[in-house]
Computed example of a mutant assay.
Amino acid sequence: MQMTSPSATTTLWRPTGPVELELVRESNWRAWPPRLPEQPIFYPVLNEDYAVRIARDWNVKHDGAGFVTRFEVESEFLSRYPVQQAGGRTILELWVPAEELDEFNAHIVGEIQVVHEFR
């Protein structure tokens, strides 16, 4: 009998505001909501510190609260998105076109978890 191991996953983080977080909660912590027309790209980040900075310094100022979420995505699927360096050496993110977000969500393994909260 051959055992199949679960596919490898990559941990991603996403800084988010209260409105987006509520939509994630409504999905039972399984999916990111569709982008708005002025949001052509979904930006998960590859490093927790960077996500914390955005949630604390940007989301709190603009939304009154900021949250950092952590989630796992199948690594093989993610290989289609080159890592983008958006500033410093540790400011790394993926650029997922809005029209691919449903497919991206289908490759999330487990639940999206809130790991930090700032107000």
Score class of each variant (00 low, 15 high):
Ser75Gln: 09
His62Ile: 15
Phe42Leu: 07
Trp29Val: 08
Val52Cys: 07
Thr69Ile: 12
Phe42Asn: 01
Asn47Pro: 00
Ala51His: 01
Arg53Pro: 00
Ala31Trp: 05
Leu36Val: 00
Arg53Trp: 13
Ala55Lys: 03
Tyr50Met: 12
Ala65Asp: 09
Arg30Lys: 15
Gly64Cys: 09
Ala65His: 10
Leu36Asp: 01
Val73Phe: 11
Arg56Gly: 06
Ile41Phe: 11
Gly64Leu: 08
Ala65Glu: 14
Trp29Thr: 10
Val45Thr: 09
Tyr43His: 11
Asn28Met: 09
Gln39Pro: 00
His62Ala: 15
His62Asn: 15
Asp57Ala: 15
Val68Met: 12
Trp29Tyr: 13
Ala51Ile: 01
Pro34Cys: 02
Glu74Trp: 05
Pro33Ile: 08
Phe67His: 06
Asn47Gln: 10
Gly66Ala: 13
Pro33Arg: 11
Gln39Glu: 15
Asp57Glu: 13
Ala55Gln: 04
Phe71Trp: 04
Ile41His: 07
Ala55Val: 01
Glu38Arg: 13
Pro40Trp: 02
Arg30His: 13
Arg30Ala: 14
Glu38Asn: 14
Glu38His: 10
Pro33Ser: 10
Glu74Ser: 13
Val73Pro: 07
Pro33Cys: 07
Asp49Thr: 13
Pro37Cys: 07
Glu72Leu: 15
Gly66Thr: 07
Gly66Val: 10
Ser75Glu: 07
Leu36Phe: 00
Gly64Pro: 08
Ser75Leu: 12
Pro44Arg: 11
Gly64Glu: 06
Asp63Trp: 03
